[in-house]
Design a protein around this nucleic acid. Structure first.
Lengths: 194, 194, 194, 194
DNA sequence: TATGAATGAGCCTTCATTCAT
DNA sequence: GATGAATGAAGGCTCATTCAT
C-alpha cells in the first residue's frame, strides 16, 4: 500500500508546509518536491496529479481529526458534553498546527469548484459525526424533539469554521482554544435570553 | 462618475454571469467583455485590471445588500426581529440571484489571498451591521448582558454562510428562504432545550 | 499649409518633451496630446500617424540644425574653420536643448528599422553639408587630394555622434561645448604624431 | 554550467538569426524557440526572460570579439599596428556574420533604455581595450603626450561604428573589410594635411 | 524506483487609430 | 476643425506533467 510508504507522508507533510508558507497559487509541484526531498517526477509515483495531493492531504488530516474527536467523545454521556469535546478538539488541533490551520481555512478554499466538491465529500465524514451527536441528543431528550438536525449541524459547523477563519485572518493572535467554552455555550443556548 | 455610466453596470453584471457559469478560473476578460457587449479594451476604461472587476463587483453587491437590510431593519424595534429580517433578506436576495449566490459562495473564494483580504475589507461593513444589532439587543436587555458580541457575530454570520453554501453546493435544489425562520430560531435559542 | 499652424508646432514640441521625459516606448500618443493640450484625435488632423510625428520632429529640428550651421559657416574661408564651427554648433545646440539631446541620441534610435531608414533620409541633408565642407577643403588643397570624402564624413559624424551620446549617457554631467575644440583638433590631425 | 550546454548556444544563435531576419520587435520568443528547435518553455530554463537572451547574446558575441582582437594584438609592438589590427578584426568579424552585424548595428539599439544601459556595461570591456591601446601608444611616445584618451577613444569607436552602420544600412553592398586600412589611416592622421 | 530536463497550452493588458458628435 | 470614447490585435511567461535514462 502506497499510503504507508515513508515518501507518501513526506510529500503530504511537505505540501502542508509549502502551501501554508507560499499560498495555494505559489505552491508549485516542484516546490513541494524540493521540500519533501524528492524529485518532481517522484511525486507522480505516489499521487495521480497535483489535485490528488491536496485531496489526500485533506483526507489524511480529516481522518485524524474525526478519529481523535471520536476518542474524546467515547466516554461522554451527554450530547452537550460531546459537543463541547468536539469544539475543544477542533480548536485545539488547529491551534497546535498553525500551518494546517492556514491551509484548511484559507488556502485550500482557493481550489476550483471541482476540487472543492471532492473536499466536501471528505468533509462529510466530519459532518456526519456532528449530526450523530445531535441525533443522540434529540433521542435522549436533551435537545428539542423538533430540532432540525441538518440546520443545527450547519449552525455548529458554520460557527466553528467562521471562528477559526477569523482567528487565522487575525494572524492567530489570540488563544483560540479559550473560545471553545463560550462558543459551546452560544451553540447550546443561542444568543437570546433564557 | 464612472460608476454610474451604463457600461460600468453592464460589465459588472456580465462578470457575475460569466464567473457563475464558467467558474472563476475560466472567466477570461475576453469572455466578460463579450457577454457585456463591449470590446476587451473597454473593460480597462472602467476597471484598473481584472481583480478590480471582482472587487468592484463585490463592493457593488455588498453595498446593495447592506443597504437593503438596513431598510428592512429600520422600522423594527426588537433585536430578534431585526435579526430575522437580516437572515430573511440575506437568504432571499441570494435566492433571487442564483448567479450571484454561486459567485459569492464558491467562486470568489478562489481568489488569491491578496484579493481575499480586500474582499474582507468590504465584508466588514456587513459584519458591523450584525454587531450593531447584537449590541442593540444587549443594551435593551433582550440579549444577555454578558453576550460576547464578536463570538455571537461569528455564530450568526458563520451559520448563514454555511447554510447558503450548503444550499449552493446542493445545486439550489430546495427553498433557501424557507430556512430563514428556523435558522433564526436556532440562532436565538441555540440547539439546547429551554 | 498645416506646418505653419500653431497646433502643429505645439504637438512637435510636446513630443520632444514627452519622449525625453518618459522614453520612446512610454511616449504614447495620448500623452503627447495631453502635453500639447489637444485631444488625441486632433493629432491625426496634423499627422498621418505616430511615426509621422517622429519623422516631422526630426525633420523640423534637423532643418533648423543645418540652417544654423550654414549661417555660422557662411563667413568662414578655411575648411578647418568651417569644421570647427560645425562641431561647436552641433555640441552647443544639443547642450542648450537637453530634451532634444536625449531624444536624438537615445530615444529615437529605439524606433524600428523602417522609421530608422526614414530618419536616415532626413539625416542625409546634414551629412551632405559635412561632405561639402570636406570637398571644399580638398579642392582648396587644405585637405589631401586623395581624401576619401565618404570615409572622412563617417569619421566626423561618427565621432561627434559618439561624443554626444557618451555625454548624454553620462547624464550630461560635463560641459560638452568645451569638447568642440579638442575634438576638432583630433579630427583634423588624428591621434598619431605629426 | 548552463552556458556550456548545447541548448544555450542553440538559443543564442537562433536569436541572432531571428532578430536579424524579422527585426527586434518581431522577434517573438516563440519564433526564437522554433528556430532553435526547442519548446518555448525551454528558453526559460536557460534564460531569465527575453531581455536576458539579448544581454547574453551581446555578452557572448562581444566576449568573443574582445578575445579575438586581443589575440590579434598580442604580437604587435606599435600602437598604430594594434589599432589597425583592431579595425580590421572589427570589420572582418561583422562582415563574416551579416546577421550579427544587423543585430548589433540596428536591432539591438531598439531595446529600451534599461537594456541599453546593460548593453553599455558589456561594451565597456571593448572600450577599455581601445583605451589601453591608446595609453600604450602615448606612453611609448608614438602618440602625442597630451592626447585626450577618452576623446580619442570616442573618435575611434564612433568612426568604426558609424562606418559599419552605414555599410549595414546600405545593405552590405560593398566590401567593409577593405575600408579598414583607409579608416585606420584617417584615425591616425586625421583629415587634415601633414 | 527515482530522476529532472523538456514540453506547450493559455491569457491579461496596452495603445495607435477611428468616427460619431 | 475638434473631441475622446471605443476598438481589438498581439505576445511573454508559468508550471503541471511526461519519459528517457
Amino acid at each position: 500500500m502506497k499510503k504507508t510508504k515513508p515518501k507518501y507522508r513526506q510529500i503530504i507533510d511537505a505540501a502542508v508546509v509549502v502551501i501554508a508558507e507560499n499560498g495555494y497559487h505559489q505552491a508549485q509541484v516542484s516546490k513541494i518536491a524540493k521540500q519533501a526531498g524528492v524529485a518532481d517526477g517522484t511525486i507522480y509515483l505516489y499521487f495521480k496529479n497535483k489535485e490528488d495531493i491536496l485531496i489526500s492531504l485533506f483526507q489524511d488530516k480529516m481522518g485524524y481529526f474525526v478519529e481523535k474527536i471520536e476518542e474524546k467523545i467515547a466516554g461522554k454521556e451527554k450530547a452537550a458534553e460531546k459537543l463541547l469535546m468536539m469544539v475543544e478538539s477542533h480548536f485545539r488541533m488547529l491551534s497546535e498546527d498553525r500551518h494546517l490551520a492556514i491551509v484548511t481555512q484559507l488556502e485550500l478554499r482557493q481550489s476550483n469548484k471541482d476540487l472543492r466538491h471532492k473536499i466536501n465529500e471528505v468533509l462529510k465524514g466530519y459532518l456526519a459525526l456532528v449530526e450523530r451527536i445531535l441525533a443522540d441528543g434529540r433521542e435522549s431528550g436533551e435537545f428539542p424533539a423538533d430540532l432540525d438536525i441538518r440546520l443545527a449541524r450547519q449552525m455548529i459547523f458554520g460557527t466553528m469554521d467562521e471562528t477559526v477563519t477569523t482567528w487565522v485572518m487575525n494572524e492567530q493572535k489570540y488563544d483560540l482554544t479559550a473560545l471553545a467554552e463560550p462558543v459551546h455555550k452560544l451553540l447550546i443556548g443561542g444568543c437570546g435570553k433564557l
